[in-house]
């Protein structure tokens, strides 16, 4: 039973990682940008949620009204910069690494390197949990999973069913041909990067709800999140969700079967094996 609890909780946690991976995967697949600044936006949104909730007394979920549009803007502006300077895929790694370092240090200067936690009277979710049979799930985990699933499904629908989504897919496959057919890639790219930024804001909001904030969180996320991006298939939205659930469940199971400290090693080793044998992801898309 404890294994089932661990696997399901792990999968729920993994969905939050999938949410973080979503924006990265889209930007990499469709815009050919590997945007480490995505982690900077998540971190910044997390701290802004913390700051807004504590200073106004609002529910942390309500702060999304401010953080999502703000991060949409930030994401769009960064993409405009990449477009303006015609940044290549590998160079975008180095440039966004610089942006990430700047953000981490700015966050440290403003909120210090200490742990920050929302007071429990503002964050009612922290103490709640939901019992399903003999399984118990903390409310923050359920919230995270809920947001993740809704956003991933929404992204999949937009990409598959709308004109803009199909235009983006065409653009991801062949930029020149797509441009020749009149697809305004600049506008689409900036909108996509903005949407990725907004998804970063949602992910960022979930961290202060679920636990504590420190400025070096991005470096704990990066390994697992990119593993999910690659295992899910770059640019493959639903694959990202499956990969997140799978990695999370594995990680949870390993933690109870062996010890929690071995879990990162086992998960990372599995990821490396998967990269070597399935570098195009675990869930290849049709026609790809």
């Amino acid at each position: 039973m404890i294994e089932l609890q661990a696997a399901v909780s792990g999968a729920l946690n993994g969905s939050l990682y999938a949410l973080m991976a979503l924006g990265l995967s889209l930007a990499w697949g469709f815009l050919k940008v590997i945007n480490l600044a995505h982690f900077a936006m998540i971190l910044l949104a997390g701290y802004l949620t913390f700051e807004l909730a504590t200073s106004t007394g609002l529910s942390p979920i309500a702060t999304i009204v401010v953080t999502a549009p703000l991060m949409f803007l930030v994401g769009a502006l960064i993409q405009l910069g990449y477009e303006r300077f015609d940044v290549s895929e590998l160079n975008s790694l180095l440039i966004s690494y610089g942006l990430l370092i700047i953000t981490v240090q700015v966050v440290t200067n403003i909120w210090t390197a200490d742990f920050q936690r929302l007071p429990s009277e503002i964050n009612p979710f922290s103490a709640e949990s939901l019992a399903v049979g003999s399984l118990r799930f903390p409310m923050p985990t359920l919230l995270a999973a809920g947001f993740a699933v809704v956003l991933v499904v929404a992204a999949a629908l937009v990409l598959g069913r709308t004109y803009a989504g199909r235009a983006l897919q065409a653009f991801g496959q062949d930029r020149e041909i797509a441009s020749a057919f009149g697809i305004d890639h600049r506008l689409l790219g900036v909108l996509l990067a903005g949407a990725a930024g907004a998804s970063a804001a949602v992910a960022g909001m979930l961290f202060p709800i679920g636990g504590t904030l420190t400025p070096d969180l991005p470096f704990e996320w990066i390994g697992l999140v990119f593993a999910i991006v690659i295992l899910g298939g770059i640019g493959n939205v639903t694959g990202t969700l499956y990969a997140g659930l799978l990695v999370g469940a594995t990680s949870g199971l390993v933690a109870v079967i062996w010890t929690p400290s071995t879990s990162p090693f086992v998960v990372f080793s599995l990821v490396v094996l998967a990269l070597v044998f399935r570098p195009k992801g675990l869930f290849p898309q049709k026609g790809g």
């Binding site: 910069g81 300077f85 940044v87 160079n91 180095l94 440039i95 690494y97 610089g98 942006l99 990430l100 370092i101 700047i102 981490v104 240090q105 700015v106 200067n109």
Partner: peptide, 13 residues
């Protein structure tokens, strides 16, 4: 670190 990060971005661009 802020200065170094900015330097990296500017020189790369």
């Amino acid at each position: 670190l802020i200065v170094l990060g900015a330097l990296l971005v500017l020189v790369m661009l």
